[in-house]
Each structure stands twice: as structure tokens, then as C-alpha cells.
Design a protein around this nucleic acid. Sequence first.
DNA 1: CCAAAAGTGTTTGCTCTACACCCATGG
DNA 2: CCATGGGTGTAGAGCAAACACTTTTGG
Lengths: 226, 226
Amino acid sequence: MNLQKYPQMALSVEIIIFALHEQSLQVLLAQRTENPYQGQWAIPGGFVQEDESLDKAASRELSEKTGLEGVFLEQLYTFGEPQRDPRGRVVTVAYFALVPADAPIRENNLSEAAHVAWFPVERLPRLAFDHNDILSYALRRLRNKLEYTAVGFQLLPEYFTLSEIQRTYEIILGVRLDKRNFRRRILGANIIEPTMYKRTGEGRPAQLYRFRLDAVAEVKARRLFP
Amino acid sequence: MNLQKYPQMALSVEIIIFALHEQSLQVLLAQRTENPYQGQWAIPGGFVQEDESLDKAASRELSEKTGLEGVFLEQLYTFGEPQRDPRGRVVTVAYFALVPADAPIRENNLSEAAHVAWFPVERLPRLAFDHNDILSYALRRLRNKLEYTAVGFQLLPEYFTLSEIQRTYEIILGVRLDKRNFRRRILGANIIEPTMYKRTGEGRPAQLYRFRLDAVAEVKARRLFP
DNA sequence: CCAAAAGTGTTTGCTCTACACCCATGG
DNA sequence: CCATGGGTGTAGAGCAAACACTTTTGG
């Protein structure tokens, strides 16, 4: 074929994997086993195969790193500065993933001996390549997205209490919210439904809710104009 | 370098170029001069050079196709299905551009003999590759973006009347808006300022405004919750 | 019975929406 | 003086924000 006359490059996908742990928003990072940046922390990822779509490459990498399937995964942005990888031209399609708090992460996978660990987003190490930039872009996008879609549920287990969602929003957005107003709003939005279960523990048992799969979970932004 | 062990691919950029012409939102398309899809209309674009960033490649292509520099240009999405180009693996980073209604488009450029033409978005031909999908995604994103940022000004000349902005919004969103409410809102948003000029023509002359460069042109979306 | 977290309404102010008439200019 | 588009205010409804006490359970 006549594509060879055009410059050929390596393409990678990288996945910013967010989860809530211990009352903070955390990101899964992988320690590099080779040069360049050997030993430094980086956003997990890998190269796109010849016959593989970008989405497939991303979910394959996600499952290789964490063992997870079927979690929320969305393309974020494509980074293509010529000098961003010292080995040569590598263009990276960044994705972000939201994994439920109770998801069983298998941290050391067969195919990858890489050491991985969770880091709270406020206390990130210096990352390899341009990964600090990529991560802060992902974080901005997550916060933004949280404000006009119901994507926050992706970070919760299947059954959750109203206080748990509220805490989720408070953690990610970094604000305190009024309990009564929050409940009125979320129940009015008609995107969750009560279940027959309750969570017991300290204090009065709480009603467990779950996300409604048929919910239209997007808010019309208030237009700048009309 | 050791990048050669990873699959290498061709990378292209394509630019969906929007403008307002004759009371409708139009897109600039290029007729393909070679196979595959010879003679069919396609989104203009080209391959990314070895030492060129994605943004640079996009603005180079835009200026080759239209002669324009410095117009609004934003990365849209990256399309990477393995079979989307019959010649082989080509991953495309799509951008979209908004060009002012009065911009002088030089339609036939030296380096490209390609025939280009404007098409209203409601009456598009069948396009080459997966370009119909890409275009409808771009359109959705433009409409969305219009609702919470002041990006609509990118489609207007430097000086414009309030009626002209209102018509811009009506055309793109496909709705009718109330004149008084629209004006109250846009003036309250503090993103435009009156100038010393008026536009004369039929009827009473209209005050000309311009976009304030220091304006914070983003609306906080109403949160789903709080 | 005490500690802990769940659950529940009302009032006030603001924002959005609907709506109709006069004004300035050119022909 | 007439046609054309530009420019202006107000009242009513719906939404958002502030605010404190009672309920249910486990220990």
C-alpha cells in the first residue's frame, strides 16, 4: 500500500485510573521498569497493536494492570508533542477510568511485573514524561464532568447510601454540601432508586440506593445565552 | 532506538471547519483527488509530519486549505478503528475550527489542487471514510460547547450587532430566542463591550459591539448535585 | 440511656420566562 | 410617511439556598 510514504509513528494509550480510597480521590500509577525514567512513577499504559482499536487497547491495558473489565472508560485527549518521549516519536491517546470503591483490584498481573500503587491526587510524585500535565488535565476534566453528568456513581459500589454519594461529591469537588438540599436534588433527578436493603453500622441504619440504568444522567447546562 | 519493536502507524489530522454563511452553519469539505474514494467529499486534512506537534499539523493544514491563520482551533477526538482506511492503519486526530463570517477564505491554494466547497450542515453529501460520523460528532460538540462557553463569537466578525449574535445562536442551536431576554443575559455576562461604531443599513442603525478579550467566557454549569 | 449517623420542610431571595410597544433611519 | 430593523421593562413562576431538630439503631 502507499501509506509508507507518510511518517510512521508509535501510538500508545495511557489510562488515568481514578478511585476513592480512604476519603480521598486516588490515582493508580505504575513504576517504570525500564529506561527512560526507570524507577519513576508513570500513568499506566502501553502501545496500540496493529489490528486493535484505541478503545480496545485502552481496555486491554486497564485489564492487564488491574484485572478489571467493564468499568467506565472514556477518551480524554491526545498528546503529540514531538519531543515528549526521549526514545522518539510517540503519540499518546489518554483515557480516564473510574473504578468503584469496592472493585477487587488485582495489582500484580501475570503479564506485567510492574509495581503499581495508589496515590491521592493532592500528593502526587514527579511523574515520567509529560505525565504530570496529562494527569492534571484529567483531573480538571473529571471535576468538570462531575458537575453536569452523573458520572460520580461510577466511583461507588452498586449499592450505596445517600451519605456516601454526598461524601463522594464533597471529596472530588472539595466543597461541603448541605444534606437536605443534596438529597432533594438527587432524588428529584430521578437517577437513583431505593432498594430493599439497608446498611447497618454505627448509628441509625441507612437506606441503600442504586443507580438507575435507564436514567438520563446529563444536566442541560444553563446556557450562556438565551 | 528501541521503538521499532512496536507497531508503527500513519497519523493524520482532519479539521472540521465551521462558518456561518447565508443564514446557515456550513462546513468546508474537500473533494478527494485520489483513491480511495476519489471524487467523494471528505473532511480536509493530511498527515502529521515527523517533527510536528498535532496542533501545528492541524493549523498547517487549515492554513493550506483556507489561507487562514490564528482562528479558533480545538482538538475534538481521535478516531482509530483499524479498518477505517482501506489503505491500512491510519489514526486520525480530528480538530474543529471556527472561522469568522467575514474571513477571506482563499479556496484554492498553491500546494493543493483540491476542490473545496462549503456545505450547510443539514445537507451534507455522503462523505469518504468514516467522515460522516466524525462530522456529526463535531456538530454535537459545537452545539454543546456553545451552551456553556462564549465560543460563538469566533464565528462573527470583530464588530457585530446584538441581533447578529442572536441570529448566530439561533442558527446553530436551531431555536428561536427572545430578544429582550437574550440582550439582558449577554450584557449581564460582561463579555462584550459597546464600541463607538454603528452599523447602518435598513432600519434604525445598530450599536456595534466587540468581544472583550479579558472576558471569562465560561459558564459554570448548574451542578447535578448539590 | 447515650452516641452516632439517618432522615425530614419551610421560608426567602433570585433567576428565568413570557410578553408589546416606541425609536431612528433610508428611501 | 412608511417600511425596516433596533431598542427597551415588568410581573409571575419556579428554582436554589439557608437553616435545626427528630428518629433509629448498637453498645
